[in-house]
């Protein structure tokens, strides 16, 4: 194995659930406030992912007090306590950037039931 692959493999986390675009997820993210470490929960729709081993990340979008907020989480980061899957939604593309232009009822996604 080449050295770069080894460095990346060593940092991979295998505990993330299988997620895809359109899923509603809750990301428990540790944040440092001075000395204290606190866990913050960011719940929203996953609107895209970037794949690349340890460099993988997901983009999560939520509406907070009427304002759209997006956060990008490196999914192998040790600062992520856990990622919870809330539900799957039926979507027809990998990147849901069209949701940014939609508000309210139009921005709803249909849940996928298995």
């Amino acid at each position: 194995m080449n050295p770069i692959e080894r460095i990346e493999m060593n940092q991979m986390r295998m505990d993330a659930p299988a997620m895809r675009s359109g899923d509603k997820v809750r990301v428990h993210y540790r944040i440092r406030e001075g000395e204290k470490v606190r866990t913050q929960i960011f719940e929203g729709v996953m609107i895209g992912q970037s794949r690349g081993g340890v460099r993988s990340s997901i983009t999560v979008r939520k509406i907070s007090f009427g304002v759209g907020v997006e956060r990008i989480f490196p999914i192998h980061s040790p600062l992520i306590e856990k990622v919870e899957l809330v539900n799957h939604n039926r979507v027809r593309r990998a990147k849901l950037y069209y949701l940014r232009a939609l508000r309210g009822k139009a921005a709803r996604l249909k849940e996928l039931r298995k």
Partner: peptide
């Protein structure tokens, strides 16, 4: 120079690194 990647060092932020033999 072997290439670049990124590491999570010290339980902290993401650090871009160059890997050197």
């Amino acid at each position: 120079k072997l290439g670049m990647t990124q590491v999570f060092a010290g339980g902290d932020e993401l650090i871009p690194v160059t890997v050197i033999q």
